[in-house]
Design a protein around this nucleic acid. Sequence first.
DNA 1: GCCAACGTTGGC
DNA 2: GCCAACGTTGGC
Length: 139
Amino acid sequence: MNHWLVKTEPNDWSWADHCKAPKRTTCWDGVRNAQAQLNLKAMAKGDKVFIYHTGKEKQIVGLATVTKTFYPDPTEETGRMGMVDLRAEKAVPSPVTLAQVKADKRFADFLLVRNSRLSVMPVGTKHWAVLCKMAGAAS
DNA sequence: GCCAACGTTGGC
DNA sequence: GCCAACGTTGGC
């Protein structure tokens, strides 16, 4: 199983919105970056995903699961962009902030730090385990 | 196919 | 609100 992190601007679509969605599931649309799209395509059903809030919060707030793999976004004109479905599992007991991550040497090569503009990224096994621990969540 | 100009994202 | 980083666009 692979692990991922996706970003969202809470004023636009927040973790709370996700939890209120039918079956706590939503299509993760709107990703328009090539590298992020490749990461979406690489997701498998059952993969675990951290949900990260950008903007004022800048912290990992919840855990989600991929329930549907990559499929085309019918509303997107070129037909090339797609999305996956994510189900909100549970909020993490203690959100992990970007400041915490940046302050930890173990995350020096983490994409969240290295490429702040990437909105969908893989999370290595070790990073995942550390982040789960920091968040007080079971890995 | 290169690269300058422009737009967007997201941290500060 | 600013600006650095990065992607994309369009003229050549």
